[in-house]
């Protein structure tokens, strides 16, 4: 497998010297990180290791105190999660992302609704039929078949809801999808479904950046593992061959099992 990238490939997202402090508390210190197309990058670490702060910086929820972010080689900054989304970095939030009483289609197209002209050129109205069709098509790309996307999200399973949230990222054609604990609230079957969704994103050449406490998920999915400890990146290595036990060991000791 060549997903871990290398000097011959250009990173999609590149962090240099990223730091974040809240007053005197240092949450992230001097992190360099390159993310290559097709990777599933797992960011691991104990509670308080700085992985959530790092994710918030990458998703646009917080600005870094130090360092630079490059996207496709060009320096950028994310003013908000929406700004990051417009630049192709989508974040799937565990609980906050969906409006359960609204339709699947309305959720997929939230904030970016499709319209059609109504007779006159300047008068445009919502194109519900097209949104319903395209929402169904996005879900199908994720191997989730839902015939009627005008149904409310409330009736869906946890795995299907994740698929709806990911479909929104697809609607923006996000090249980078950040998922924070995507399987935390799910049962065994639904977890398997979400892991499959992540594999689909990877097979489309998208980057998935994953935070998970579930070492089995990480071992099954990740192509590369980054371990955070006290705000710093202490390990950055290919995930190939790592067992869940190896991962747990690396998080606790902060040392690479290969060393």
């Amino acid at each position: 497998m060549a997903e871990t990238g290398g000097p011959d490939r250009a990173p999609l997202l590149s962090l240099r010297g990223i730091g974040k402090n809240y007053g005197a508390v240092v949450a992230v210190r001097d992190v360099d990180l390159d993310v290559y197309p097709g990777e599933v990058l797992a960011i691991c670490g104990d509670n308080g290791a700085g992985k959530s702060s790092l994710i918030k910086i990458m998703s646009g929820a917080q600005a870094p105190s130090a360092g630079t972010i490059r996207l496709r080689g060009a320096e950028t900054r994310f003013r908000s999660p929406h700004d990051a989304l417009l630049q192709g970095v989508a974040t799937i939030y565990q609980d906050l992302a969906l409006a359960p009483r609204l339709s699947i289609a309305a959720n997929v197209f939230m904030g970016a609704e499709l319209t059609r002209p109504l007779g006159l050129k300047f008068l445009r109205v919502l194109d519900r039929a097209r949104m319903a069709d395209e929402a169904r098509a996005y879900l199908r790309r994720l191997s989730v078949e839902i015939a009627d996307t005008r149904r409310p999200v409330a009736g869906l399973s946890g795995g299907q809801r994740q698929a709806v949230a990911i479909s929104r990222a697809l609607r923006w054609d996000a090249g980078i999808v950040i998922m924070d604990e995507p399987t935390a609230a799910l049962g065994v079957k639904e977890t398997a479904q979400v892991l499959d969704l992540i594999r689909r994103l990877k097979s489309e050449g998208r980057v998935v950046i994953l935070i998970s406490h579930n070492m089995a998920d990480v071992a099954a999915l990740a192509t590369r593992v980054v371990v955070m400890r006290a705000g710093a990146k202490v390990i950055d290595r290919p995930a190939e061959g790592l067992t869940p036990d190896d991962l747990g060991h690396m998080i606790i000791t902060g040392r690479d099992v290969a060393q």
Binding site: L85, A99, E113
Partner: peptide, 19 residues
């Protein structure tokens, strides 16, 4: 109208979606 509805139904989700 869709943005008003989304705001009322799930404010945080709507905000994150750029509404």
């Amino acid at each position: 109208g869709a943005h008003m509805t989304a705001t009322g139904e799930a404010e945080e989700a709507a905000r994150l979606a750029g509404i």
